[in-house]
Every structure is written in C-alpha cells, then in structure tokens.
Amino acid sequence: MIEFKHVSKEFVTNNGKVSAVSDLNLSVEDGNILGIVGYSGAGKSTLIRMLNGLETPTSGEVDVNGAKIASLTGKVLRKQRQKIGMIFQHFNLLWSRTVVENIMFPLEIAGLGKAERLAKAEELTTLVGLKGKENAYPSELSGGQKQRVGIARALANDPEILICDEATSALDPQTTDEILDLLLQINHKLNLTIVLITHEMHVVRKICDHVAVMENGKLVEDGLVLDVFKRPQQDVTKRFVNQEVTPAMHDTEIAVHELIEAYPQGLIVQLTFHSTQTQMPIISEMLRQIPEIDFNIVEGSIHQTQGGPIGTLYIQLTGPKESLDQAIPFLQKMKVETEVLHYGD
C-alpha cells in the first residue's frame, strides 16, 4: 500500500519558489497499477520520485508499505530503495556492461554473491524475453530490448513496487504495446504494485486499473479507469479521455457539422456504452420500438480497458418530432449515456 498524505514540494530556484506538488493525497492498493497523467510540468515526476526518496517532500508524508520514505536517510534509505524498482524513459543502462551485467548491477549493490547474482539474472533475462542476448551490450540492442533490460534490472531485488517514469515514451507504438504486455504479465505474476507516468491515455487504458490526473501540482481527479473514462469531470481529464476514446474527434466534429448542415431537421447524439452494453443490440431495439425513426452512423469506436470495453457512437436520427422525443428517454432508460449535440427543428 502506497499513501501520499498532504504531500507538497516546493523547489527554490533563482527565479523564486516553484510549487511542483501541492497538498496531494493519494493511495494505491497492493497489486494495483496506477497511471498518473497530466501535462508537462504538472508535477508527475516530482511526485513519484518521492516514492524512492530521489525527491523529498517539503511537507507531508509518503508511506510505502509502512516505511515513511520522507524521513529516511543514509543506509536505511538505501536499503529501502532496494525494495523499489524504477524504470526510466531513457533506460539509463550502463554502457560498459552487458545485459546480464546490467541486471546484476542492483544485486551487486545489495551485496549478493556472484553465483546468486548470475542465477537471478538468468531467471530475469528469460522473464523479460531476452534469452540469447545475455552478453550483448546496450549499444547492440533496440529501444524495446533496452527497456526490457531496464525492467529486469528493476525487478532484480524482488521489489515491492515498480515505478515507471514515461517508460514507453521513447518507444514506437508496437514496442510500447509489447512493453505494456510485459508489465501487465509481471503485475499478474508477481502481484507487483506499479505506479506509472504517461502522456498517452492508450497506456492507461491498456494496463492501468486506476488513474490519477494531475494539473499544476494538484490531483484533480482519480479513480477506476473505467469510471474516469466514462464520466470525466475535469476539463483536463476530458481532454485526455477524448484524445483516446475518439482519436478522430476532430474529424467527427467536422462530420457532425456537415450533417447538421445537410439535415438541419435531424437529431444528432453521442452515445457512450460501457461493459456489457457494448454487446447488446440497443439501437435495433430502439428502431423496433420507434419504427418511424431513421438513423445514420457518423462515427463509432470501441476500446478495451482493464475494467471492460467502452464504446462511443455518434448517430443522426431523423423522423417525426414526437418519435424523436421518445428516442432520448428510451436510450437513457437503457442506461446509455446520451448527449444531444444538435436538435434541429
């Protein structure tokens, strides 16, 4: 269990004080994967670096499985850091060491014997899918392979939690997915708590069960990924969610606009389905019940999240006014989130 309690961090710079994190409260249960999103400078890195004491809060408490990180120093802090794995955007591997030697590095720091180090490194190379690459140097690896070494290295001391600062931001989409699958696999296998920072909602959707949104050092929204995706409250969150749920948002707006011009009398609605609703024939049911209605699909998409699928559909409904008036209550009755974008007359 990770807990941030009233955590604030101020940096003193030549241009005065910068408040990077302010009075933030957040907790993560064991075995969960939390995604932290927010724009550049929101304070995400500062926040998660407090988990292993790379940053000390100006006030407040950071608790990792009972250890009060902020108050630890010296040897105790170093011992605690061994229980927290970290992976980085730019991998931060040692150029002078081979894959196994890089994986053995944290074990050397922890003071393990050579035989034990080798055995553990062997096991981890297999886990992250680098068998056969043991003696390669980082310069001989692709970005994805480097991050696999980074992950293996972070797991070497059997950490309680894994923190990832934009671990996939330097990778292409395909490699990103592979690394995310690996993280998910590790999370399931080792019941490892993971806290990750990302700019891409795609990453959150794919592996996180909780999401926290930060803006200007504050936590503005957090909760289960599915809930936040369904009903984003804050503007920042909406922007992040829209980036993901409707990648073609802009195109859709244009299409909706064109439709409105072509069929000024139509009703244009945005429907959001979740979980089992995505498998139900809600639209055809509506057409059966209100046969005077005609409909037109503008755009639609379905995404898988850790909490279940989520779908968005933009449709145009035309027909007599009284039929259209029945349509909205019907959809609402079916518990489909309905937003009327345009109602012509």
Binding site: N52, L54, K75, L77, R78, K79, Q80, R81, Q82, I84, M86, F88, H90, N92, L93, L94, W95, S96, R97, F105, P106, E108, I109, A110, R153, N157
Partner: peptide, 25 residues
C-alpha cells in the same frame, strides 16, 4: 546523469557510484 540517478534509485552508496558508475562508465 540519469545513469547515476538510476544507481542511486537502486540504493547505491557514494563509493559504489564512484567505482561502478563514474570510473567504470
């Protein structure tokens, strides 16, 4: 600097950072 920081995050002490990171790298 990220490499030095990675070593710190693993719990390395100053001597280990000097020997295993600074001098070696």
């Amino acid at each position: 600097y990220g490499v030095i920081e990675a070593a710190e995050a693993m719990g390395a002490n100053k001597i280990q950072i000097i020997w295993k990171v600074l001098l070696r790298e």
